[in-house]
């Protein structure tokens, strides 16, 4: 704990807004009005029907800032109901500021139970990660997307990129990767690696690491993506072919954690956060997926007992 911040033992501070009765019950279930939900629901169905295709929608302003997950949040609110159990992660962590904020808000307007346990969640909203443990057929994963257009890398104009999608003309993207290889002998795209969905649409998988890209291919769960600021919804249904762009002699490769393990749970096959210790300059690693790491740590403790 950082000095100055109260420890977990401090009794929870009463929310100052509780003192303002005018704030309570001022908002409807799941915040959005029913008309907004219906529009988002209609557009989600179209997005599922045309995998990888960006469907425009009348994105509403949310009480969190544009760029902070307003897209994902709108999908979550249009989907959620009393039977749901919600999990929200940011960078793989359940307790990151953005995740906590979003969870707090959704619970405030819906009262749904929250969980950190990936398997227990029916609805998961995520920023920049796909959980390590495989998702099941009755789970929905909602991605927060900053820039939905993979072609933005090579073409700033929306009008032109729309045309390129219409014609399935992705030659400029291929050329970009090819030039990368010529210059660096390597594809330099780190996160946000472009993929082809159902052999038709080039899609931005949101800034997930390359590590997570293979999880999109023929998964069991429905993946829903939304960019609130850019007003686009798209989807990858279960059992859908998702392939990263690659060349025969320059295959797609995930991040290399060879020979490294999580300091905490010992996992040798999970996406790791690199932590630099200020004292010695030594680097340690820990799982980015905190729920996965917690579960493994618990199992380790039980095993050693």
């Amino acid at each position: 704990m950082t000095p100055g911040l109260p420890s977990e033992a401090t009794p929870p501070v009463a929310d100052w807004r509780d003192a303002m009765p005018s704030n309570r019950h001022r908002y409807s279930y799941a915040f959005l009005d029913e008309g907004a939900k219906r529009e988002i629901r209609r557009k989600m169905l179209k997005a599922v029907a045309i995998p990888g295709c960006q469907v425009g929608f009348g994105s509403r302003e949310m009480p969190i800032a544009r760029g902070w997950g307003t897209g994902g949040l709108q999908l979550t609110l249009a989907l959620i109901g009393p039977d749901d159990v919600l999990k929200v992660i940011d960078q793989g962590a359940d307790d990151s500021v953005n995740a906590v904020n979003i969870k707090k808000f959704v619970q405030r307007v819906t009262d749904v139970p929250l969980t950190t346990d990936t398997a227990a969640a029916t609805l998961i909203q995520t920023r920049h990660r796909i959980p390590e443990s495989p998702l099941g057929p009755h789970q929905l994963l909602v991605f927060q997307v900053p820039i939905p257009e993979p072609l933005r890398l090579v073409e700033p104009s929306e009008r032109k990129t729309r045309r390129m999608h219409a014609e399935a003309d992705y030659s400029r993207m291929w050329l970009y990767l090819y030039e990368d290889i010529v210059k660096f002998n390597e594809i330099t795209v780190g996160a946000r690696y472009p993929v082809i969905v159902n052999r038709r649409y080039l899609m931005d998988p949101s800034p997930i690491p390359r590590w997570d890209v293979p999880k999109l291919n023929r998964g069991e769960a429905l993946f829903l993506f939304c960019a609130g600021r850019e007003k686009r919804i798209y989807a990858v249904p279960p059992h859908t072919e998702v392939t990263p762009l690659s060349f025969e002699d320059f295959a797609f490769r995930v991040e290399d954690f060879h020979g490294r393990r999580c300091e905490r749970c010992g996992a040798g096959h999970s996406f790791l956060d690199e932590v630099v210790d200020d004292e010695s300059g030594r680097r340690t690693y820990s799982c980015s997926d905190t729920a996965f790491c917690d579960q493994r740590s618990r199992q380790n403790r039980q095993g050693s007992r």
């Binding site: 279930y29 799941a30 029913e34 939900k37 629901r41 989600m44 169905l45 599922v48 029907a49 989907l79 959620i80 109901g81 009393p82 039977d83 429905l222 249904p237 279960p238």
Partner: peptide
Amino acid sequence: MGLLQRNCQKNYRILLDAMSRP
């Protein structure tokens, strides 16, 4: 949440599931 609203939400999830599993 009213009953109508509740049914719409539930049914939507069913339609979404149907669309995801042709």
